[in-house]
Structures are given as structure tokens and as C-alpha cells.
Amino acid sequence: MSYEDWFRKDRLPHIFCAGCGNGTIINCTLAAIEQMDWKKDDTVFVSGIGCSSRASGYIITDSLHTTHGRAIAFATGVKMANPNLNVVVFTGDGDLAAIGGNHFIHACRRNIDITVVCMNNQIYGMTGGQGSPTTPKGCLSSTTPYGCVESPFDLSELAIAAGANYVSRWTSYHVKELEKAIKTGFETPGFSFIEALVQCPTAFGRRNKFKQVSDQIEYMKAHSLLKAKYDRLVESGEPVPTDMFIVGELAHRKRPVMGAKP
């Protein structure tokens, strides 16, 4: 009847903090899977290390909770050994783009047939709120106490440039859109990358003027610019607001695929 059957119910409630967006992203991913008629025995979840990476442990299928940054490397191995499996990776921004950055771009380049869902909370949540490669300029973290001065990575742009077949970005506010995007990612052969911006009230929100969990959700809602609207602004030559991020389907193409189902 619903995606609830995919949870390891004995493991719930999970360890995420109250209001942590990771739980929402797990819901959306499982709701998308539920529509795919995938068998639990043919589906594998892989993740690295981090709060977000604990997600695979709450799902009833076979799963791998691997070493920090190496989720995609393990997932590549699983998929190449048995291309009939459906391989889904849960990862965090630090896991994916800092220590695992090389695995990420090379998986995009190879266009291996896996789906990566990145819960981008713009900080290292698990280890106490250090700045990550996606911490926006000016944001406070325990390693950037006067505000981050570095330019952040745009993970989706990175995936497009490196060659992923499907790329889209949504937030934990856009649950229905995210569910649809993940489903399209599953259906698209090749590397599918779904970036989900999430709130981390404990490590990020607390330091960055989001007193309530919902404040950060409201912020994400107000600062997301739909891809279609962005395209219209660019076409008409109007200025694009600099404090907003683009959400929607950013790439959907047919580059040659590695490890596709025979």
C-alpha cells in the first residue's frame, strides 16, 4: 500500500535530530521506489559516513554503510558485478564533494547506471558543524567562525559538467517534486544525481539565524528559483537574483551508459 514497508521498523525512530531534513529525503526516495516495481531483493542502498549516510541502515533491503567518501566507489563495484541490481546511493555534501569528490566526478564521467541522492545540508553535521565544500559564503560554522570566505561548490553544475545523464535539485520543502525527480532519476539509464537541500537545525540552523526548524524551510522555499523561471529571466535579459538557487530538472540527456541492465 505505501512506502512504509521499506523501512526497518525495528530501527525506528532513527537517530537524526528533531527536525533534521534527512528523514524527509528518505521518505521521498522510498515513495519514488514504491512506484517503480522494484523488488526488495534486487535493490541495494549504499552510503558513506555522515548523518545523511546513516539512511541506508534504516531501509530493509541489502545495504552497505561504507567508509567516508567511498559510497560511489562501492556502488560502482556492486553495479559492475551485477548490473541487474538497482543501486541507490545516499550521501552528504561532505561525503560526496569533499573526501569523495573524485569518485563523484569519475562516476559522472563513466555515467554508471546508479542513482545518487545527496542530502546537502551545507555543513558537516555528524562531526560538529565544520564548514563543507558547499557552505555558502558568509555562513557560520565551527571552522568558519567569522563567516565562510570560500566560494561553494554547485554540486549539480559539477555533475552536469562531469557528464551525468540526469541531474535535478530540490529541497526538503518540495517533497512531491523531489519524489518525482528521484523517480525520473531511477528511470533514466546512466548516472542520475539528485541534490536535495536539507535543513540541519543542530549544526547549521542554530549558527545561522534559523531559530526554528521551520525558519530554514521557509528560507529554502523563498529562495528557490524554478528552472523554467530562471530560463525566462535569462532569455528576456532580466537580472537573475543572486541570493537564490535554481531548483528543477537541470539535465536530462542520453550519453553512453556503463553498467546498464542487460
Binding site: 528523514g23 524527509t24 521518505n27 521521498c28 519524489e179
Partner: peptide
Amino acid sequence: TLCGVCQLTCPDQA
């Protein structure tokens, strides 16, 4: 499931 937005949003599957 119709709507179901609250269920999808609830981070704790409650």
C-alpha cells in the same frame, strides 16, 4: 494516497 504531504515531510515517519 491522496495529498500525503504531511507524511512525506515528517522527518520521523510518525
